[in-house]
Computed example of a mutant assay.
Amino acid sequence: MEILLTIALFIAFFLLLRQEKALGKYAQSTTLFTQAVDKYQKAVDGYEEAIAGYREVIAKYQQETELFKQDITEYELLLKEHGIDKSKAEPTRQLTPPPPPQFTLPDLKAMRRQPSKPKAVSKNSPMYKEFLHLLNGNEETANRLIIRQQQLNPDKLDNWILEKVIGDLKRDRRA
């Protein structure tokens, strides 16, 4: 009876560890998702700022165009007051408002993020060889794990990436 109780406790403990590990991975993925949402919101905020700036430039252009039209009207009135024929006043210069500024803002929805190419980790380093040994020589898996860590931590150095993947692999094998 004690053996069955011990086995049942062992199974319960094992299931509890698996559940704790799953919760840890869920928390990590939630954190990554939250970071992605924050980055997206910053991009949207920047886009909205650019649109606001563009609208300010257009409004200023429209104000300047109105002032220019008023100046043309005043100029034509002065010509009339002094009896000067408009066609003889300045034959080489036409009075027209300047063309509107040409701005094109990118469409955020149409833009696709170009993934950055991860840096290659030196395959001659002892840490890489240790990592490869832990994976029984499976270079494909090693490269996939390294690339994923580089994507998650683009500002980290190669040694840090290797330490992280080796530590994660050893930790996961203990659990």
Rank of each mutant, 00 (worst) to 15 (best):
R113Q: 03
F131V: 03
L108A: 08
K88Y: 02
Y128G: 03
P118N: 05
P100E: 01
P106M: 15
T96D: 10
L79C: 10
P99I: 10
Y128R: 06
E81W: 10
E81V: 01
M127V: 00
P118Q: 03
T104I: 01
K80F: 15
F131D: 00
P106L: 15
L79G: 05
A110L: 15
F103M: 10
T96C: 00
M111A: 13
V121C: 02
K80E: 11
S122Q: 08
E130G: 11
R93Y: 07
P97S: 08
G83V: 03
P100V: 00
E90Q: 01
A89K: 08
P91V: 01
D107Q: 10
S125M: 02
L132E: 07
K119V: 07
F131T: 01
D107G: 09
P98K: 14
L108G: 06
K129D: 05
L77R: 10
T96P: 04
D85E: 04
P100I: 00
S125R: 06
S122A: 11
P115D: 06
P126H: 12
K80C: 13
E130W: 08
A120H: 06
P100L: 02
L108C: 09
E81F: 11
L132N: 04
S125T: 14
P99T: 13
L108P: 06
A110C: 13
S122L: 11
T92K: 00
G83K: 05
A120D: 09
Y128M: 05
K109I: 14
M111R: 11
P101I: 01
R93P: 01
L77C: 13
S116K: 14
S116T: 09
D85Y: 05
L78K: 14
K119A: 09
E130L: 15
K119N: 12
K88S: 02
M127Y: 09
T92W: 03
K86Y: 07
I84L: 00
A110P: 13
T104N: 15
R112I: 15
Q94D: 07
N124H: 02
R112T: 15
K80H: 13
L79S: 09
N124Y: 06
E90L: 11
K109E: 10
K129I: 14
T92A: 08
P115H: 07
L77S: 13
M127E: 12
E90M: 08
P98V: 02
A120I: 04
D85R: 06
Q114F: 05
Q102V: 12
L105M: 10
L108F: 07
K109Q: 13
P106S: 15
L105Q: 09
R112W: 11
P91S: 03
P106E: 14
T104P: 12
Q102N: 14
P91T: 00
L78E: 09
R93A: 08
S125C: 04
A120V: 06
K119Y: 11
T92V: 05
M127T: 11
L105E: 07
V121H: 01
L78M: 13
Q94P: 01
P115R: 10
I84K: 02
P101H: 04
T104D: 15
K117S: 09
K80W: 13
T104G: 12
R113K: 06
L77M: 14
Q94F: 06
F103C: 04
Q94E: 09
R112V: 15
D85M: 04
E90W: 01
K86G: 00
I84F: 00
E90T: 06
A110H: 14
L78C: 11
K86W: 07
P97H: 12
Q114C: 05
L132R: 08
A110R: 15
P118E: 03
T92N: 02
F131N: 00
P91E: 03
Q94S: 09
